[in-house]
Design a protein around this nucleic acid. Sequence first.
DNA 1: CCGCATCCACGGTGATACTG
DNA 2: CAGTATCACCGTGGATGCGG
Lengths: 138, 138
Amino acid sequence: MSDTHTRVPSVLAADLPSPVPAREYEDCPVTGVLRRIADKWTVLVLVLLGRRPHRFNELHRGVDGISQRMLTRTLRTLEDDGLVRREVLPTAPPSVEYSLTALGASLLTPLSALADWAVAHHAEIAAARNAERPPRRT
Amino acid sequence: MSDTHTRVPSVLAADLPSPVPAREYEDCPVTGVLRRIADKWTVLVLVLLGRRPHRFNELHRGVDGISQRMLTRTLRTLEDDGLVRREVLPTAPPSVEYSLTALGASLLTPLSALADWAVAHHAEIAAARNAERPPRRT
DNA sequence: CCGCATCCACGGTGATACTG
DNA sequence: CAGTATCACCGTGGATGCGG
């Protein structure tokens, strides 16, 4: 594996000029969306909601280790971004159901592609990370 | 758009039991890889290197706004994870060339899927974010 | 049951200056 | 040219307790 700077399909190779002007990366949808979902809990919540709607404490129990604060924050941000829908059910006491919007559901597909890559290659990354570094020659 | 918790293909829906045990998300390759590449500059550097190899200052000029410090850090981490290869060229003065490894190049494909989604939907996210919030009824 | 407020620790990021 | 070193800021996230 030596010459691997292949032509990349899709927007990754197509969109960015070089030098990259400031707006191209500050407003970069790719980086923006990535940072949006790359926090500690968002992906897991999306995955659970991708299976079926959940109530708040159901998610709280389902995502082991998450605090109420972070679950609330995560759900609120997902709701604000239109990825998750919040519905107050007329029960007693009131319960709240969270489910994916169409937008949120559509995100799961490309997320799956990245997930597959991660599952397939994370061991290689871990191996490379643990390998000895050659001395920093300049 | 009301009932959108469709069956999700791939590992996203398949792998995680509910309740999710701690190890399933702490070591979660998906979240791990996401957090790995979701910093401010990594994607942009990967994109530029996906087109062709670059020298250090070439990248520094190519990614407008990045500091020397962050470029060094980004490249070092990418190198440590086996996504980028660093080669010292026997010129005078010595120059250093960075290029993608096969692993790094393979990441660009799923990244493109997410990028396409981001390009297609980031406006909807922005619109939802700017919309008025209904009052928080409980 | 659901969510918010407060306090606090940590890491990512930036500005600047220095070095082989 | 290709980095290192130092200082400082701020957003993320964890713990705990209160409120509707």
